[in-house]
Design a protein around this nucleic acid. Structure first.
Lengths: 341, 341
DNA sequence: CTGTTAGCGCATTCAC
DNA sequence: GTGAATGCGCTAACAG
């Protein structure tokens, strides 16, 4: 079933069928209706490769998505919501989605760029990939429009979307302060990662604004995993002047901190309040349930799509005056780990 | 940069370039090398839409993936590993991957089928979608090769991949029996879902084989979510003859059961042993850590791809003698919730 | 072993 | 408002 067959059956030319199906103005309403009707009856589906070939555009976006062999557990559960949001937003804008293979170590630098060209992709969305990916850097350096979430690269046509990490962290500190806590420590993520650094900044700013002292030993760097949070908390609780509250930059570390407290014979939230970041599934499942700064996955995904579209609409010209960074607000979820005693 | 330009620069015809690039036998080694060299230098990328058009095959697989608005929390974290495994296996087999939009309620029945035809997709992989999806049923009824994980549909060219749910459940019961438990209850998933039903079957068989009685009230149907497990366990523990161990068909329900035990003043695993199913992230994070029957996501994803490929290789002819069901083994992870006292 | 030719399905000129 | 003709980039016959 193709356009020619439709033309034959409806007694018009292929050109007219094409025009009718694409809603071009220069077709009479009558023939348009007739043709559309016939197309539906016959279950006609346009051949996208052929359209792409002649139109020189595919209406397709590439998605680079690091399943996270190395990021295991980090943003892992988080990605799912993002992926879902991106897919929905993209299809609402009538774009198709191609999932690109993550470039391995032995892949040539131009792997992503090649894939984009092969498939005539119009742009790429990047979901949390290691910041040192050469292939990604090469892509970003090209003229291919790229929108990324929590990405560390920049290029002539790239935009970055991220949660308001600093504000989220500050909100957590503020909340703990309101509960009466004055000795608030933090466990950070790896500080070379932008989100981790930003959360630390938010913590520091809030403490400063609230007039809380931040002794050097109150800031401990973790790796976003459970064990690092547990170890950090163990150290903090053993200080001569231990904190009464801990803000962990990731939920797994926060849960680890809760374990450390339990092992020290302290109860949460009475003896130690804990607030995490991300709202992973487990946050609602542990006991007491973990208070956390939730990222709005849907909003992040939608923002990435919106950012990419504005990049596409702007055309290949200068992107000087375009927004290069989109910030999505977070939401503090107060649960059992940080309630008023 | 296209094939014609390559032909011009290397002084041969486009046909020869095409043959060289596609590794056809009838090209001299010398010219092949020369052309490939040139192609690499010039960063040539073949135009896939054009190839697809003329070859009438796209080397592309569609992926129907329900992010799970309704399945929220169910297989949610589980899907991520599957997706990753599928992507890897597919790219190793040199297939491209197109993410199809989940058909909404207002979508016409043929939505998926249309998408397959539009893009010339060779087959489709389905990751856990509601069993009553009309669009999916229509697709399965067509001649499009479909491989699905935990799917409930069948059709002329479909295969199903799933974990060995029955054996996994049986292993859990066996393990509890070995710990000395004789009164073992179960909380099931919604029994209209194949995995839930299979896990119950495994539970029953194991109990029978071990000579354990299964009073009717020892089998409680849940919905895979936390609250249902908690409620079910509360009921079980209030029985005149309460169980000393609970096998829950999903980790969230198992964690819920642990909460119920705590609320009843019972300690896990001394007073009540609990084993779950799936090995979600939270299983390792709760305290005590949850023993569970882990599904092998990588193996499942790879099996789905292998199944689809065998379907593709078999051609449109009869699939009578093809395997229609692939079963992947599970692995029992013994953790704190079910150790010997 | 290589070149010539035709056409995949479609959108788009340009005539009418 | 519609039709005839052209070509997108490529592969697959068919000749040589």
């Amino acid at each position: 079933m193709n356009i020619r067959e439709l033309a034959r059956r409806s007694g018009v030319s292929t050109a007219t069928v094409s025009r009718a199906l694409n809603d071009r103005a220069e077709v009479s309403e009558a023939t348009r209706a007739r043709i559309r009707q016939l197309a539906t009856e016959l279950g006609y589906a346009p051949n996208e490769p052929a359209r792409t070939l002649v139109r020189r555009r595919s209406d397709t976006i590439g998605l680079i998505w690091d399943s996270g062999q190395e990021a295991q557990g980090l943003h892992n559960p988080f990605l799912l919501g993002l992926l879902s949001a991106v897919r929905t937003a993209l299809s609402e804008a009538d774009y198709h989605l191609m999932l690109l293979t993550t470039a391995g170590a032995e892949e040539p630098d131009g792997a992503y760029l090649q894939a984009v060209r092969r498939h005539n992709l119009e742009g790429v969305i990047v979901l949390t990939t290691p910041p040192d990916d050469r292939c990604l850097r090469t892509l970003a350096a090209s003229t291919v429009p790229c929108a990324g979430i929590d990405t560390a690269f920049t290029g002539p046509r790239t935009v970055r979307v991220s949660s308001d990490n600093a504000a989220g962290a500050a909100a957590a500190v503020q909340h703990l302060h309101e509960l009466g806590h004055r000795r608030i420590a933090t466990v950070t993520g790896p500080l070379h990662l932008p989100p981790a650094a930003e959360r630390l900044t938010g913590y520091r700013r809030a403490c400063e604004r609230l007039g809380l002292p931040v002794p050097e030993e109150y800031v401990v760097e973790g790796d976003f995993f459970l064990a690092s949070g547990e170890a950090a908390a163990r150290g903090l609780l053993a200080l001569p002047d231990p904190p009464t509250a801990i803000f962990a930059a990731g939920d797994q570390m926060a849960i680890g901190a809760m374990h450390a407290a339990a092992d020290a014979g302290l109860s949460v939230p009475q003896d130690l309040a804990v607030v995490g970041f991300d709202d992973i599934d487990a946050a609602a499942l542990v006991r007491p349930a973990l208070s956390t700064v939730a990222q709005d996955q849907r909003a992040l995904g939608e923002a990435a799509v919106a950012a990419l579209r504005s990049l596409l609409d702007a055309g290949p010209g200068s992107v000087q005056d375009l927004v290069h960074s989109y910030i999505v607000p977070t939401r503090l979820l107060v649960r059992g780990s940080s309630r008023r005693p």
